[in-house]
Computed example of a mutant assay.
Amino acid sequence: MKRYFLLFFLCMILLPLYTEAQVRVLSENIEFSGVIGSSQRKSLIIQNESNQVKDYSLKYLRGNIGSSQNVKICIGDKCYDPKRDISKIKISLKPGEIFTDLYLEFELGITETKGNFDLHFFNSTNVRDVFVIESVYEVFNPRADDTNHKDISIGSAYPNPTNRQAQIDYVVKNPNAVVKISINSFIGNPVAEYQLDPLQKNLVINVSDFNPGVYFYTLFVDNKNIVTKKLVVKK
């Protein structure tokens, strides 16, 4: 009987060490994709699925980040460098709270490359209570065939080919111009159309629902055809 009691007692002590993380990352996989020298900011959403207050600290950042690249973790209006300010990066979550005030800022650097990095957070009262934020990135050279029009400067779609999304960077010089991108299939059937917001700097095209194949996208300024380029969608 004493043996069973001792076993039960030990299980009660060790149980917290083997509980799974009670924070879930609700945001999709974090992807940074852009041209050399650009920077991007992504929003993260996490949820405390327990009925207790949870306090987490950044334990470490792991991955292949180049010397010209820089990552910052922002909590609300305050941003921290995980290499220098790791002791300051802490998050407190109320029971059941969905936390939306967490952001990642990433400077893509000066070299065409791709890679990934992970952020590991842990609960100081239970080393087994952890959650991980995974990020991937891809950096491209500016395209030589970028278009410079009097009303807009616009780059080519990248990555190209793609199977998830393509991005087109642009700067609208004339906010009164009506600028749009029209996408057609290889045989000329209209697929999608996007009007470019002069307050934005890039257009993200989701191609996950496109059939694999060759498409053509055309830049229109005030309904005039400026340039047409090819976009390849792969499986």
Rank of each mutant, 00 (worst) to 15 (best):
I110C: 08
I73V: 15
N116Y: 15
V127M: 15
P142V: 08
K54Q: 01
G76W: 01
T125I: 11
L15V: 09
F131S: 05
T19S: 11
F121W: 02
P95G: 00
G96E: 02
G66W: 12
C79V: 10
K72Y: 15
F140I: 04
I91A: 01
G115P: 05
N123V: 00
S135H: 08
L58G: 01
N70S: 14
E49F: 04
G109M: 04
D151I: 05
N116V: 08
I45P: 05
T125N: 13
E20R: 14
I86D: 06
G34M: 09
F106H: 02
F140V: 03
N48T: 00
L10N: 08
K150T: 12
T147H: 13
R24C: 09
N48R: 00
A21M: 06
I65P: 10
F140N: 08
F121P: 03
Y103V: 05
I91W: 02
S38K: 09
V23S: 02
C79N: 10
G96V: 01
I133D: 04
L17A: 06
G63V: 04
F121K: 00
E112W: 06
N116P: 06
N51R: 10
C11N: 07
T111F: 13
V132G: 05
T113S: 15
K59L: 15
I73R: 09
I98P: 06
R84C: 06
P142L: 10
Y103C: 03
S135K: 05
I73S: 08
I36K: 13
F122K: 11
L108V: 09
L58P: 01
G37D: 07
I73Q: 07
Y137C: 07
L61C: 09
I89M: 03
S43M: 09
E49I: 12
C74D: 07
L104K: 08
D77Q: 14
Y137V: 03
G66N: 13
Y4I: 09
G34W: 09
T19G: 10
K54R: 02
L14R: 03
I46P: 00
T125H: 13
K59W: 12
I13C: 07
N48P: 00
F117A: 07
S57C: 10
D129T: 01
T111C: 07
S38M: 08
F131Y: 05
K150S: 15
L44T: 03
S135I: 06
K88A: 14
M12Y: 07
V136W: 09
L93A: 00
L17T: 06
L104G: 08
F117H: 08
D85Q: 04
T125L: 13
K83F: 15
D151V: 08
K94E: 02
L108E: 10
T19F: 11
V136D: 15
Y80V: 02
L44W: 01
I89E: 03
R62W: 13
F32T: 03
D129H: 02
C11S: 15
G109L: 03
N148G: 03
S68C: 11
D151K: 14
L14N: 02
L44C: 01
F106V: 04
I36C: 09
T147S: 12
C79M: 10
F32P: 03
D77M: 11
E20W: 10
P95L: 00
Q69Y: 06
E112M: 11
L26M: 14
Q40H: 12
C74P: 04
L108Y: 09
D85T: 00
S27P: 07
